[in-house]
C-alpha cells in the first residue's frame, strides 16, 4: 500500500534543499546572540596588591633586620576594596619599636590587651595565634626589633579597612585614619615593599618592609 505523505523527498534535489535548510536552522539557533544585559565578563586587570602577603624581610637604613618567627607572621590580606593587616607579637613583649596607629606602620602592635594569648580568651583574634614561633624566642639578632625573649606568639592586632590605588599610591583607611603609601612591586608582583621614615632626635631612620605573596 502506498503511503500518502504530505511532502515528497524522493528526489535528491528536494532532499539536499531540506538538509541545507535544516543545517541553516541549527546554525541560526546556535549562533543566536544574547542581549547586552546578560552576564558581563570583567576584563579589568585586578590590582597587583590583591592577595595574601606575609612579611619576609625588614630593613633599617638598608641593613637587614633579623626577625623572629613571630614577627614573620605579620601579614596582609587584600581583597577587591578591603584589607586586613594582622600583627603578631610575643605575649607581654613589644615586638617592634615602631608602634603607632597607622595601618601600614602598625607593626608590633599593642600587646597589652592580649597577654593571655590562649584559646580561652574572648579576643576575636586569639585563635589566630600560631605556636610556630612560641618556643623559638631566643632572638640572636643584633637588632632590637626582634626583641623576643620568651612567651607565646599571638595575634596582637588586627586592622581591617579599605584601600584605594591611585596611580601606584595606595590609600588605606581604617579606624578613622587615612594613610597613603607608595607600594613597590618586585619579582613579577610576587613581592612588594614600602618604606617608612621617622626622625627622632635629629636622626632619620628609614625602615623597609618586604612582603611576599602567599
Amino acid at each position: 500500500m502506498n503511503k500518502m505523505y504530505p511532502f515528497n523527498f524522493s528526489n535528491g534535489k528536494n532532499k539536499t534543499v531540506f538538509l541545507l535548510a535544516m543545517l541553516a536552522m541549527i546554525v541560526a539557533i546556535f549562533s543566536c546572540n544574547k542581549s547586552d544585559d546578560t552576564i558581563v565578563a570583567n576584563n579589568a586587570t585586578p590590582d597587583s596588591i590583591i592577595g595574601t602577603w606575609k612579611l619576609v624581610e625588614e630593613y633599617r637604613n638598608d641593613q637587614l633586620v633579623t626577625l623572629n618567627d613571630c614577627g614573620l607572621q605579620e601579614n596582609y590580606i587584600f581583597g577587591a576594596d578591603q584589607f586586613t593587616h594582622e600583627i603578631y607579637g610575643m605575649s607581654g613583649k613589644t615586638n617592634h619599636a615602631n608602634n603607632n596607629d597607622n595601618t601600614l606602620n602598625q607593626k608590633g602592635g599593642d600587646d597589652d590587651d592580649d597577654d593571655s594569648a590562649s584559646d580561652d580568651s574572648d579576643d576575636e583574634g586569639d585563635d589566630e595565634s600560631d605556636d610556630e614561633g612560641s618556643d623559638e624566642g631566643t632572638d640572636e639578632g643584633t637588632d632590637d626589633d626582634g626583641g623576643n625573649t620568651g612567651g607565646v606568639c599571638a595575634l596582637s592586632q588586627t586592622v581591617i579597612g579599605y584601600w584605594l590605588n591611585a596611580n601606584g599610591t595606595y590609600t588605606f583607611n581604617a579606624n578613622s585614619t587615612t594613610e597613603s603609601k607608595t607600594i613597590h612591586f618586585t619579582d613579577a608582583a610576587n613581592k612588594f615593599y614600602f618604606e617608612v621614615s621617622e626622625t627622632a632626635n635629629g636622626t632619620t631612620v628609614t625602615r623597609k618592609y618586604v612582603f611576599q605573596r602567599q
Binding site: T52, I77, F78, G79, A80, D81, Q82, F83, T84, E86, E124, G125, D127, E128, T158, I160
Partner: peptide
C-alpha cells in the same frame, strides 16, 4: 567567624 577574611569574603580563599 574569622574577621581576617572579610576583604576576601567572596573568594574561595
Amino acid at each position: 567567624g574569622k574577621p581576617r577574611y572579610i576583604p576576601i569574603y567572596t573568594t574561595p580563599e
